[in-house]
Design a binder for these strands. Structure first.
Lengths: 338, 338
DNA sequence: AGTTGGCACTCGGAAGCACAGAGTGCCAAG
DNA sequence: CTTGGCACTCTGTGCTTCCGAGTGCCAACT
């Protein structure tokens, strides 16, 4: 176990390094933080911390920088979450309140988060899995062509074309629409398959094919759309990354464009509360020099999706965590209201 | 007027510079392109080209690089559009054909364009202005709450909530839905306002307020959504920009995040055919060292939106233009089919 | 045992300098 | 108008030198 002072030294190193972007030496440390001991002592502590793998030196004769393990300890034990100030809270709320629809809420959230943290923001659209069906609408576009529109309680809308095996009359369509809605409206997505299972049986023989086609498209939509969408923003902040540009930034941009990667990234954070993944803790290689701070959000108590930021491992964790948490909270409120 | 050979020299300079990213000198030119003249002659031509502002030297004793004006001449007079090869065409078609809905079409188009050109791709969603209404759907969510869903012929769906001044029965709703659709289905957006003007008159007094509310929301949607959306991709390609990274790339990323800027950019290209804007021809400052190649696309003959790429002024114009044009053509086909 | 000052050592980065090479402009001859 | 020749001008590179921040270790002190 590390002594109290050694932890303080680690904390100081992290803070200084985050601030200056430069390896921090023993002398500078004693000057900026009044630890009440001499540089020599700090040097001993540093040697111990390095031995344990919490810090490292880039070159023999340079200061120390925290390792991933060092940041991990810092986040877990040494740092709290820095709460937003009252004016900041008000600004967040104001900014989000102007949104007109779901797309707009997400877009605003991304911008906000990117600005607050000065990092790359990622916001997942509210998931369909946990949502409920508000309404299913069927429109006849041609005798053998139906458009299916699915509306969720979070305000999300998905539409699909259905090619019917046989012409399908307006009355049959109205019938199907009514029966379908009476069964699934207000129900959870996961319950839908069993709820509609025997629906085709109530229809004339010639219509059954079409009914089945519509239903299977509906079910497909539910599943497919679990490839959920997300929005990112603030990529310009990547330019503040470091001095050794192209090599660092390129894989990050590539990873950010792969929605699949990002979704997996957010998905991996099992904790519905805040999750911080540091450097190599991220499975994806391109993100090995970044940290991801994510948190679930949703209307009411339930988390329906995640949001977060991606930044250099050398980031202001308390501040970032505070911003992420605050934004998630307010977005939840906004969603609950609408 | 520049002599034929001088134009050839300019062309050669552009081609070499695009290939090597390095200033090109007189000797190298004569070696790589058999112009049939000596370096000394080329030097004279270069001096003339520089005099006219088509090329410049970064330093006194370095080769020449094209100026914006030089690229302009190259694009206008010296270069054609390089057509895609047959396999490339097939690949494009295959890639786009798998799309399931409009979002997917746009997403695939962005990816495709980014990969083909190895640059940043921008695709505008099919515009509502030139579109026609396919269907308007009204759903009653609560006694005094209606959801309005607008479906366009390009498959786009927009939804809005309407708070009604008074409760509104299902029969009135069905009535309104029917009348509304009979008037606007298949019509152009721009015609809608006049078409629905006198609609409230056909309703009972107590319902008129609601009808008006619905109509005004509909009209709002038509207008508001002319703040059209777009999708970008391939930002990782920015890392191939140049050696002098942060300064070049940052403003570009910032500009790309401002949808407004991009929309204006695409909007400025009046020519429905291909438009190339080079360097300082772009109004936005951050894009002064980039070129934008854009083209209109749409189902049928009409262009309903734009797509294009953003890359360094030093880009392969013929190849890029070929790719952009081909993609636009195939996207148009896909949209027409659905 | 832990802390401290002293000291020799290491190594990266900046500064200075010389040099090679690519490229130019100009001129006189073809 | 083209060409070879020639003197000139730079940038980029490699080399050396030097400075200083930072370290590790040790002996002394509390």
């Amino acid at each position: 176990m590390l002594s109290e002072r050694r932890l303080q030294v680690l904390r100081a190193i992290v803070q200084d390094y985050v601030g200056t972007e430069e390896p921090v030496g023993s002398k500078a440390l004693t000057e900026r933080h009044n630890l009440g001991v001499s540089p020599a002592t700090v040097r001993n502590d540093m040697a111990a911390l390095e031995e344990e793998g919490y810090i490292a030196q880039p070159h023999t004769s340079a200061g120390r920088i925290p390792t991933d393990k060092g940041y991990r300890l810092f986040v877990d034990k040494l740092a709290g979450v820095k709460p937003m100030t009252a004016p900041e809270r008000r600004a967040i709320q104001n900014f989000l309140e102007g949104a007109v629809d779901l797309d707009d809420v997400v877009a605003r959230t991304v911008r906000l988060l990117a600005q607050l943290t000065r990092q790359v923001a990622v916001v997942q659209y509210p998931s369909l899995t946990r949502s409920t069906v508000r309404h299913v609408e069927l429109l006849s576009l041609a005798p053998a062509r139906v458009m299916l529109v699915l509306i969720t309680d979070t305000g999300r809308v998905e539409q699909r074309m259905v090619d019917c095996p046989a012409p399908f009359g307006e009355t049959s369509l109205a019938d199907l629409r009514a029966r379908l809605n009476s069964r699934v409206a207000g129900r959870r997505f996961t319950d839908v398959p069993t709820l509609v299972e025997d629906l085709p049986e109530g229809f004339d023989k010639e219509d059954r094919g079409t009914v089945s086609a519509v239903l299977s498209t509906l079910l497909e939509t539910l599943v497919e759309e679990n490839e959920e969408r997300l929005m990112i923003g603030g990529t310009a902040n990547l330019t503040r990354f470091g001095h050794d540009f192209p090599l660092t930034i390129r894989p990050v941009l590539e990873a950010l464009e792969e929605q699949v990667v990002l979704l997996k990234l957010l998905g991996e954070a099992k904790d519905p509360g805040m999750t911080v993944r540091i450097g190599h803790e991220n499975a994806h290689e391109g993100l090995n020099s970044t940290s991801v701070v994510s948190v679930g959000y949703g209307s009411g108590g339930e988390a329906v999706a995640k949001l977060g930021v991606v930044g250099p491992t050398r980031m202001d964790y308390p501040g970032t965590m505070g911003a992420v948490r605050a934004v998630a909270r307010y977005v939840g409120q906004i969603l609950a209201e609408s």
